[in-house]
Amino acid sequence: MSVLYTAVGTANGRDGRGATSDGKLDVKLAPPPEMGGDGNGTNPEQLFAVGYAACFTSAMGVVAKRMDLDVSDVSTTAEVGIGPNAEGGFALEVTLRVELPDAISAEQGKALLDAAHQVCPYSNATRGNIPVHLVVE
């Protein structure tokens, strides 16, 4: 692979700070109340959800152009769940909910999401590692 860009981020745990090397992102991190935290900050799952949603929407744009579809008014909501796994650690699962324009049929929408799921780097990184559910809304 020929790397086009490398993001560099540093964090000192789930209850601390996270920042990128270029200073464009600097956030307070805190576990959500559901995981015993005070919730007074963002958490890794929220950051992953926003990143995945943005990336998947961009991948749909690439695929839609090939399919001659207009997705200029599309949005993706990523739901990232975390919970204990059978090995005593934790695991993630993702649901991607995509709102497509009315002009795109259900069949076209499914084909678009399936193809975008093959193009999106987040989908490629998670494939086979965590469940990812695609939902057209």
Rank of each mutant, 00 (worst) to 15 (best):
M1Q: 15
T6Y: 02
V8T: 13
G9V: 15
R14I: 12
G16P: 05
D22T: 14
G23V: 09
K24E: 15
K24D: 12
D26I: 00
L29E: 06
L29F: 11
A30C: 06
P31T: 11
P32A: 14
P32F: 11
E34R: 13
G36W: 13
D38M: 08
D38V: 07
P44L: 12
Q46D: 10
F48H: 08
V50R: 05
V50P: 01
A53R: 00
C55Y: 07
C55E: 08
C55F: 06
T57R: 13
T57S: 15
A59S: 08
G61R: 07
V62A: 12
V63A: 13
M67Q: 14
D68Q: 14
L69V: 09
V71I: 15
S72N: 06
D73Q: 15
V74I: 13
S75I: 09
T76Q: 04
A78W: 07
V80Y: 10
N85W: 01
N85S: 10
E87K: 15
G88P: 04
G89Y: 13
F90R: 05
A91Y: 06
A91W: 03
T95S: 13
R97S: 11
R97M: 02
R97P: 00
L100D: 01
I104N: 09
S105N: 06
E107K: 12
G109N: 02
G109M: 05
A111E: 10
L112A: 06
A115S: 15
Q118G: 04
V119C: 05
V119H: 02
V119S: 03
C120V: 01
P121E: 10
Y122K: 06
N124C: 06
N124G: 10
A125F: 02
A125I: 03
T126G: 02
R127L: 09
G128I: 07
G128D: 12
V132R: 05
V135A: 12
E137M: 03
